[in-house]
Write a protein that binds this DNA or RNA. Sequence first.
RNA 1: CGAGGUGUAGCGCAGUUGGUAGCGCGCAUGGUUAGGGACCAUGAGGCCGCGAGUUCGAGUCUCGCCACUUCGACCA
Length: 481
Amino acid sequence: MADNKDRFVNQIADINTDYTKWYTDVCLKSELCDYGPVKGTMVFRPYGYAIWELIQAEADKRFKAHGVKNAYFPMLIPQAFLMREAEHVEGFAPEVATVTHVGDTELSEKLVLRPTSETIIGNMYSKWISSYRDLPLKLNQWANVVRWEKTTRPFLRTSEFLWQEGHTAFATAEEAEADAMEMLGVYEEIAKDVLSLPVLTGRKSEKEKFAGAVATFGMEAMMKDGKSLQSGTTHYLGENFAKAFDIKFLDKDGTHKYAYQASWGISTRLIGAIIMAHGDERGLCLPPVVAPVQAVVVPIGAGKNPAVAEKAEAVYSALKNAGVRVELDDRDLSPGFKFNHHELRGVPVRVELGGRDLEAGVVTVCRRDSGEKTAFKIDGCETAIKSLLVEIADNMYKKASEFNASHIVAVKTMDEMEKALDGGNFTDAYWCGDRACEDKIKQAYAATSRVFHADQSHVGEHKCVCCGKKAKHRIYFARAY
RNA sequence: CGAGGUGUAGCGCAGUUGGUAGCGCGCAUGGUUAGGGACCAUGAGGCCGCGAGUUCGAGUCUCGCCACUUCGACCA
């Protein structure tokens, strides 16, 4: 009964009327995370952390294929390091937490909790790089970083978050810039193949650039409320940090040169992207590749019918042996409760097995992405379910892509832009390149430039959406998280 | 840091004109149930955000503080 909904403790807010509440409800009630005792911090509960571990494994596999090795650098960085790169200090100083005391003793040199590791890695790279033979150097670390943000939201913005930061050094500018592009491609591949998440990729404007970079490239994912989520960035750092940390090498021609660098990162924010790109009125909908539980077997009426319990166990084993991450939910609860429980948690496939199924020699398989129920023959159902998982991943990507395509609106005027943004869309616009216009759009409509459009041809034939001057770029503007 | 809002059981809330606290869900125990959030019975669980004040008496009135939260600004 609809008017009886409130009685369910795990009822989540309506996705259409209260998106923000819906989001936090999903995070908390599907047991991905909880709030920590310190404001702005978030606790990963086992279910949420399991998703992160799967993302890590998939990402690591791809990084290694691109010649990247994992390493680990300290969390505490001398405050002085941060000061060496002018833009970097300015960008990060307001949100950096500082360690000033140990016991009662004030530290003579203050330490900061890393907001990102360019500086400490730069410091180490200067020791490790002395010849062109030491290049390229491509290291990655999985770590936590601390940024004391004013307002926070689970996964999207927390005072401490988990991420991966890759730091590379090359002999030439071309190689370093190519690395930033290459890794952007890897991120796009992870989004598509692992998260079933279509993204827009491209260069970011000066305003949106990383503090200390020459150029920043980003991948933007569209959430169901039409807002954009910056889901990964790669930076071409040029010689900026090399000069600040004295990363020099002796080149083939016998001269000392500064190394050219790139850095790139994706974070636990990706989990937020999954929630907001795929979730629905029933809750979370996990892409099969990163679903900690890919299929759940729900026996129905097992208490009365031992044959059901027995067969459910057999189906569970068959799936497990076939390499599916499967769970058998034989708790003493009603089937309806279990259905809702696992749907809220986003389990891609539910396998129902009751007396009726048993008689027919089938299991009833319900897919989370479409809600569609199909009867599969019990014998060999594990094979059919495995291919169903692949189909679900493809379908989720397809559905999200269609959503994106229908929510990108080309705009020529500020009025059109406002209307499109208010309607929950990204806007595809031409822009003169002036910061003033970006600021004006932000002020008027709370939208920011996201990434440059992949197609920059014919730009000169158009006018800036804001000031009407000749356009220099084609770029997406959207409201963002 | 600017503008609103809210603090009462684990969660969501009610609490009239001041009289020492109630409801739903959840939790525990027992039983009956089971194909879309089962039902009955019994039970446990509260410094009413904190501190002053008014009063015979404050969850309720006054003042101060604190915390959380929504919308801005700042950011992955």
